[in-house]
């Protein structure tokens, strides 16, 4: 798939960063369907190929919306709520991606999970993760512990880390879709999972980068069409994320459009004869208004 200019820019910056400094935050923004997630995926792919440790939230907006019955009273934090199923799913993905790192890195202190289970000091982080998978009740705490450990150990310069979040405005939203019996709506600030992710986002670690996108897709109760970071993050989020490097992903330019159409044609995806003519291409251009997602939808018809 076409790697566009914003992705190449960010990859270039990442290559040139001074890893002794605190992790730099990048915020990718753009209109719906303009290619923010693709940019993020290209960056993740590059870092994974370079052997980095990837901490990836597939969509922070979705954490507020999906699995809306998946909450329990938090084990370690009073007055807050954990999310066992979402946390275990996340841990599974994390394990698949970064297993080799987790085997090498060791815990720095002892963690007591409950009366019978605890993890000693200097145990591989993999055992902490396994604890989370076997005991879903502790899964969110396990995530918190893992992130804290990774934060501390980044100073050892053994590995480079990429923190990739899609739709980071979900972490700074107000409401969620979670409702308790009796109608109480759980706000975002009372969810431990979000809290852990936010603390990690503060960037008190070196040897890595933080790349995020802001998206109004799947956002809960936010009016659509405003795509700027200031609007979507809100005041709190903006203060939290500040300073960051904004990366704007625009819709296709003429050249990019042509190359995308050529790509579709080479993969036999555009079948209509008239669509392959100049007039047909112009029509597709105007109909999709140069939006990548819209072009994709159009082309699946023909």
């Amino acid at each position: 798939m076409m790697v566009r200019r914003p992705a190449l820019e960010v990859i270039d910056y990442i290559r040139q960063t001074n890893f002794d400094q605190l992790a730099i935050k990048y915020v990718i923004y753009g209109r719906k369907g303009s290619g923010k997630t693709m940019t993020l995926n290209h960056i993740i792919h590059h870092c994974q190929a370079a052997g980095w440790l990837i901490v990836h939230i597939p969509t922070a907006n979705g954490l507020n919306l999906k699995n809306k019955y998946d909450f329990i009273d938090s084990v370690s934090h009073e007055g807050m709520y954990d999310q066992p199923t979402s946390s275990t799913d996340w841990l599974k993905q994390f394990k698949l991606r970064n297993e080799r790192f987790l085997k090498e890195l060791k815990t720095t202190e002892k963690y007591v999970w409950n009366k019978r289970e605890s993890t000693e000091k200097d145990q591989p982080l993999l055992s902490v993760l396994e604890q989370g998978l076997t005991r879903p009740k502790n899964a969110t705490d396990v995530i918190g512990v893992l992130l804290k450990e990774l934060q501390l150990q980044s100073y050892n310069k053994q590995f480079k880390m990429l923190y990739a979040i899609k739709a980071v405005n979900g972490l700074f939203a107000e409401e969620t879709a979670f409702r308790k019996h009796g109608g109480y709506i759980i706000p975002v600030r009372e969810l431990t999972l979000h809290m852990h992710f936010r603390n990690f986002l503060e960037g008190d670690w070196i040897n890595g980068s933080i790349v995020t996108t802001v998206d109004y897709n799947l956002s809960y109760r936010q009016p659509k069409f405003y795509y700027t970071p200031f609007y979507l993050l809100g005041k709190k989020g903006f203060d939290h994320m500040d300073p960051f490097i904004p990366v704007f992903v625009d819709e296709y330019s003429d050249k990019e459009f042509e190359s995308q159409i050529a790509y579709y044609q080479s993969k036999h995806w555009i079948q209509d004869e008239e669509a392959n003519t100049e007039a047909g291409k112009l029509y597709l251009k105007k109909l999709s208004d140069m939006n990548p997602a819209e072009l994709d939808k159009l082309v699946s018809w023909i």
């Binding site: 069409f225 105007k286 109909l287 999709s288 208004d289 939808k297």
Partner: peptide, 16 residues
Amino acid sequence: EFLRTFYQLCHREDIL
């Protein structure tokens, strides 16, 4: 913008 006002394909085709 054109794309935002008319979300459905049929309306955009109608205008064009």
